[in-house]
């Protein structure tokens, strides 16, 4: 169950990477930090509504707070994502800069978010208030908390939703079109920037959702929490075949299973070593990831 839960976090973040990559061919390295920002926004919204921690909140009940926090966080986090796109990626895209420079910008934006947070809020860790009463269900020999079930169900729902948006709707068709040919799409009367902003909204709100769920499961927040999870989710996305939504889900769960499986057998310090070695092995054998399609290069 732990594996499924961790896998869900990785999958949710990996989805964000994959969406942006699928449309723009851009590795949004700031995504892990958007996840961190999401967790912090969730914290502030929750504390503001709930009160406590030295803040005189509105004193709402935990249930209502949760109901407001989730959409509020997703909206605010997607605003952060869109702000990044507007201020940093779009000017570069307009100039037709090489995508490598956009990647560097993304990397730097992530660092800035991370350390800006550290500088503004200090290094002290924040503890997330408990919004949900813990209930333990037992199915046969397996017992799970309701939170874990929510996390897993949320990840699957998001997957189904995104798959639907990308494959069935008009806007999804436009997204796939952009990834196919960025120059022909505006000629077809499709607003390029709107679609890209929409992609960022989707990806960032998924990161925001992952942020809330993570904060509820492991209620300790620190500025560097996004970095490691972000990198790992990125690796998960690539192993699944970056740019492919199914790949992100499979890669995320695979990484979760490997990590928890290793911890069950070996000392926990070996977790990263094994997880990354397995992933390296997969990429060694299948260089474009599990679902990736090798691109044929024309001369």
């Amino acid at each position: 169950m732990n594996a499924l839960q961790f896998g869900s976090f990785y999958a949710l973040i990996a989805l964000g990477y994959t969406l942006v990559y699928g449309v723009l061919r851009l590795i949004n390295f700031a995504h892990g930090d958007i996840f961190m920002v999401g967790a912090y926004i969730a914290y502030f919204v929750a504390v503001l509504l709930l009160g406590g921690e030295g803040m005189s909140g509105l004193g709402l009940s935990p249930g209502l707070t949760l109901a407001i926090t989730v959409p509020a966080t997703m909206i605010l986090t997607s605003l952060v994502g869109v702000a990044l796109e507007r201020t940093m990626y779009r000017p570069l895209r307009r100039k037709g800069a090489d995508r490598l420079y956009v990647v560097i910008t993304a990397l730097m934006a992530g660092l800035m978010l991370e350390n800006g947070n550290l500088a503004l809020l200090g290094a002290s860790r924040k503890s997330f208030p408990e919004l949900l009463q813990k209930v333990i269900w037992t199915f046969g020999s397996v017992s799970v908390t309701n939170l874990k079930v929510i996390v897993i169900v949320a990840a699957l729902l998001v997957f189904v939703l995104l798959e639907f948006i990308v494959t069935k709707t008009k806007i999804g068709m436009a997204m796939r079109g952009i990834s196919y040919d960025k120059f022909a799409i505006p000629l077809m009367g499709i607003p390029l920037d709107t679609i890209i902003v929409f992609t960022f909204i989707l990806g960032s709100s998924m990161a925001g959702l992952a942020g809330i769920l993570f904060a509820m499961s492991y209620p300790i927040l620190e500025p560097y929490m996004g970095a490691l999870i972000g990198w790992k989710a990125f690796i998960a996305a690539v192993v699944g075949g970056i740019g492919d939504i199914r790949g992100a889900i499979v890669g995320g769960f695979l990484l979760g299973f490997i990590e928890i499986g290793v911890v069950a057998v070996f000392p926990s310090t070996l977790r990263d070593l094994f997880a990354f070695s397995v992933l390296l092995g997969i990429l060694w054998l299948k260089p474009t990831g599990l679902f990736g399609v090798a691109k044929t290069t024309k001369i």
């Binding site: 192993v239 970056i242 070695s277 990429l283 990831g289």
Partner: peptide
Amino acid sequence: DYLAIITLAANYIVIS
């Protein structure tokens, strides 16, 4: 991008 990941994973493997 895939090679970027391999280098990244190599870094993590060495450290851990």
